[in-house]
Structure formats: C-alpha cells, structure tokens
Design a protein around this nucleic acid. Structure first.
Length: 518
RNA sequence: GGCUCCUUAGCUCAGUUGGUUAGAGCACGGGAAUCAUAAUCCCGGUGUCCCCAGUUCGAGUCUGGGAGGAGCCA
C-alpha cells in the first residue's frame, strides 16, 4: 500500500475564562468530521484541541474566586475536555498551556526567534484593556458615563507604560505575502484571505510580545521579569503537541507542518499573520492552511452575555440527540458562513433529512429484506441499467466527497451524500419491490441487494458526521467493524448473499416534541 | 475614511471561462403508491436575478455609479 500522507488538524485552544457553548463545539466538531473522514480514508491523523490557560484575565479571575490560578484552570479546562465524550469528538490529545512540556516549547521558539535577530527589548506605552487583552490608540477610545476611558468594545482601559520585548513583524511583510501567494487555499474562505492580504499590505508594525505587569504565564527565557504575550504562548501549543522543540521527534517529523488550523474568524489574524511569521523566524515551516469559519446566531440574535442566550451543547444533545445535533451544525449552512440556529430549522433537518429521507430509506429496505429474504442478504441476479444507474454513482461518491472535505466544504459533502439518498428512494418507488415479490421474486432480490449495497456505501460515508447512527446501520447490514473504512467501498468488500441480518431498527427517530416548544 | 464580501423563488442557498424557456432543498397545493419512522414518489413558480447606466450579437454572470447588509483596517 502506498504510504498514507499524514494529516494534522487543530482547533484553537479555548480560553478557560469562557464556558463552552455551541460556538466552541462547532469548531471542534468541524475538525472532528474532517479528522474522522481522513482516518477512514487511510490517512494517519493527528487531531488536537485544548485550553489556553495563561494571561492576566485568568490571573484576576482566579484571584476573584480565591483560588490559585492553576486550580482555577483545572476546573474550567475540564469543562472543555468534557465536550469530547458529550459530542463524540475523536481528538487524539488535549493540550493545556500550563503543562511543563508547553513551557519548554514556548521558550524554545522564543529563543529561536531571538537567535534569528527578530526580538529586541524596548518599552511600550499605551491604553491597555485587560478584558480585551489589547492596546488602543488614544483616538480609538470613547468616554464612559463617569468620564473614564473605554475601549471600542466598551471595556475599561488603563494607561500602561512598561518595558517590553518586541517581535520584528515589520520585517516579515514580503515573506508573508509570498507565503499567501504560494497557495490560493492558504487562507479560506477566499474573502478572509483577501482581508488578511490587505491587512499585511497596509504595513506591519513590530509586535509587543511580553508583559511585566503580571506573572501568570510563561517567563521569557533569560529575563524572568517578563512574561510572554499570551498569543506567543498560545499559538505554540500546535508545536508542543507534536513534540517541539525536539524536531527529530517522530510526531514532529510526521505531522509538522499542520494541514489545517481551524479557527473562528475573530482570531484569524493571529493565526494567519503572526503565527506564520513566528514560525518562519524560528526556522520552522508555516501551516498549510488556516480556515476561518463563521458564527452562529440563535433564533436570529447574536449570542451574548447580556442576552444570556448561549446554548450549552448538552442542551442540544439532550433535546435533539447527538448525531442530529452534529448533522445539523454541519449541514445547515455553507461551512465558513455565518448561520442561524433555530428550533424550527433543527427539527426540519432532523425530520426531513435524517428520519424521512435517510432513516426511512434504510428502514423500508431492511424491513423488506427481513420479511421477504429470510432475514439474510439476498442474492442478486444480473444487474439492469437502472441498477447500475444507482449503484455506480454510490460507488463513486467517495471521490466527490473527498474533494469537498479537502477544502473543508463539509456541507457540500453532505449534499452529495443526500443526492444519492434521494436517488435511492426514487429507485425503490420505480422498482416497487413489493410488487415484484408476487411477480418476480428473483428480480426483487436483485433490487433489494442493490439497495443494501447502496445503504452500505451511504452509512460508511456518513460515519464522520453521524458516527453512532452509521455504526448501527452497518451493524444491521452485518458489516464487520474492520470492514468500514473507505477501502471497502466499491466492489472491494461487497455484501455477501446469505449473510444473516438482525431485525432492523430505526436509527434516526423523528423529533418527538417537547413541552417547551414554541 | 480605505478595503473585502454579500444582495437570485415565502425561507436557506447553487449558479463553471458571459450564450437557448434561471436551478436545488425546505415550506405550500394537488395526485400516485402502500415496502417503510403518518415516511416515499410524481406534478405545480408570471422570481423587476437590489437599482441605474455601459461593454457585447447576447449579462444573474464583465465595467462604472448608487442603495442596503456583514466584515477587516485606520
């Protein structure tokens, strides 16, 4: 077998000051779907997520809670770790920036950048907002009710003047532009790429990358008075996870550079500008791609603290089901766009697409086999043109889906899958196996065999998005656990006539309703 | 203020390098069928393709201007 190209995909590491909501779940879910797809397609996958635990905001929150920062982080980090079992995420690891190995990696990349002449000591003065973790110019500020200065996001700011190390970002403009130029898919979606390029073209200023005003972070090597700017530390997690600074480590050689950093659009600049510059400065390869996805609104409104309309992922899973929730988030909107969550849309998706189209297709076919073919895979006769018209596209489906997943167009992959679901339902009606039962039982067996094969393909290809339901479907087709990768698609591992099948059971229930429905 | 993207059927969106009667899904109405999770299948749209002007034999698709929305930056 040809050597499978390794695939490294990451979520951002989530800031422990937040509670997980569907926004976090969404990012990780998208990565999970891509990671599962790649594994099934024979790739050697590394899928990482984790938590970002340093910074002044965390230090203050811990203080307010009356606990040590690390103890505070232990608690909140666990909330994010709990997302994996809840949403069936298949991440290969979970990294915390408070781990020792991460301190080592962060200090190593700092030294590498310093050795390259890109770090110098100067001083920084400006209006700083702890809440926003950003400096502002005088003219960006507004006056609050009591005459105090406020950041553009309404956060309090304070005048800060402190010594700071700087990264010579200004020296990297041309090399960054060349890096974007190498590959039109470097930053996706396209409009985000345009924004980044225009930002870089407008000129880059050196970046302040250390603080002396707090202690909760990674100390600058050789100067303990300074703590690394949280983003230097946070971004480095992607390296820590694969063994950096040991560039001879097996994981590092296998997985670096990352194939995709999945991010929310709010943190694109850190990933698409600062991070590649840091890496190139340190003599490391920059990532292949940064994909910035959009935001969810809820019933047409932004999620916000003041509205209190954050949806905990647990609530969705409890109310609609795990696979239904996963399917909805991946299908409802073009991946990369903003989208809206509404109860109505959710129920439509789970009833129409999952229960009526896919679920019912499987149920009607498996029931007929169960009742009319002695509960075993039927033996097909010669295939007709109609049979091939359904079967061939199903066998070739993986090619189109692979192309879509390669560019994280997950909604497109699902649309392609459901095209075949629709074709299969039409085929059932056109062939009317319930009529053949009386007139031509052999032909009925062929039709049902073709359908069973098509459902096998659909279930195998649906595994990345709806892993539980797909597994139950494959169980009902008596497909062995080790016969579920994409290598079994086509004619490689066709269903064997005579194989006994269990009694079919629906895998996608319709929405049952609930008292609190509007 | 500069820049980017968006504006296509009630809703969510597709629409390759400009080319015949502009598409899909959902919702809605009618019909068929009865294997199946009250599921499936078929039929049904006179949509100012945001507006104006231009290029062209021909523009939803290109150019300029304008309106509305989202975003990046200053």
């Amino acid at each position: 077998m040809a050597e499978a190209k390794a695939y490294y995909i990451t979520t951002p590491i989530y800031y422990v000051n937040d509670k997980p909501h569907i926004g976090h779940a969404y990012t990780t879910l998208a990565c999970d779907v891509v990671a599962r797809f790649m594994r099934l397609d024979g790739r050697d996958v590394m899928f990482m997520t984790g938590t970002d635990e340093h910074g002044q905001k965390v230090e203050k929150s811990a203080q307010a809670a009356g606990v040590e920062p690390l103890a505070f982080c232990d608690g909140v980090s666990q909330n994010f770790r709990d997302l994996s079992p809840l949403l069936n995420f298949s991440n290969d690891g979970f990294i915390r920036t408070t781990e020792d190995r991460h301190t080592v990696a962060s200090q190593a990349i700092w030294r590498a950048m310093a050795d390259n002449g890109d770090i110098y000591l100067d001083s920084y003065a400006g209006w700083y907002s702890v809440r926003d973790e950003a400096y502002y110019a005088e003219d960006e500020l507004s006056d609050g009710a009591n005459g105090e200065k406020l950041s553009p996001f309404g956060a309090p700011v304070e005048w800060v003047e402190e010594p700071s190390y700087f990264f010579r970002l200004s020296q990297w403009q041309d090399r960054l532009l060349a890096y974007y130029d190498e590959d039109p898919g470097r930053i996706l979606p396209q409009s985000r790429r345009n924004e980044v390029i225009s930002f870089v073209k407008s000129g880059l200023r050196d970046l302040s990358i250390s603080r002396t005003s707090f202690k909760w972070g990674v100390p600058v090597p050789g100067d303990d008075a300074h703590i690394m700017y949280v983003w230097v530390d946070a971004l480095t997690n992607y390296l820590t996870a694969v063994g950096y600074p040991d560039t001879e480590a097996e994981d590092f050689k296998t997985y670096w550079p990352a194939d995709v950093h999945m991010v929310g659009k709010d943190i694109l600049r850190f990933h698409a500008v600062y991070w590649p510059a840091f890496l190139m400065s340190a003599g490391l390869a920059p990532p292949e791609r940064i994909f910035a996805h959009g935001w969810w609104t809820v019933e047409g409104q932004k999620m916000s603290k003041s509205l209190g309309n954050f949806i905990p992922p647990q609530d969705m899973v409890d109310k609609y089901g795990l696979d239904q929730t996963r399917y909805f988030m991946m299908r409802e909107l073009p991946f990369g766009n903003d989208g809206n969550f509404s109860h109505t849309a959710m129920v439509n998706r789970m009833n129409s697409d999952l229960a009526n189209d896919f679920g019912n297709l499987a149920q009607r076919v498996l029931s007929m086999i169960n009742k009319n073919c002695a509960a075993a895979v039927p033996a097909p006769g010669l295939l007709t043109v109609d049979d091939s018209a359904l079967l061939v596209p199903a066998r070739e489906l993986v090619d189109g889906i692979r192309a879509a997943i390669e560019e994280q167009a997950i909604h497109q992959a699902l649309a392609a899958l459901w095209d075949v679901v629709g074709e299969a339902n039409r085929y059932v009606d056109a062939q009317a196996p319930w009529a053949l039962k009386k007139t031509d039982p052999e032909r009925m067996a062929t039709v049902l065999y073709v359908l069973a094969e098509v459902i096998r393909h659909l279930a195998i290809l649906a595994q990345p998005v709806v892993p539980d339901a797909a597994a139950r479907l494959l169980d009902q087709l008596a497909v062995a656990e080790e016969q579920r990768s994409f290598a079994t698609l086509g004619e490689a591992a066709m269903l064997q006539p005579g194989t006994a099948l269990p009694k079919p059971q629906g895998v996608f229930p319709r929405y049952a309703g609930s008292e609190d429905d509007a």
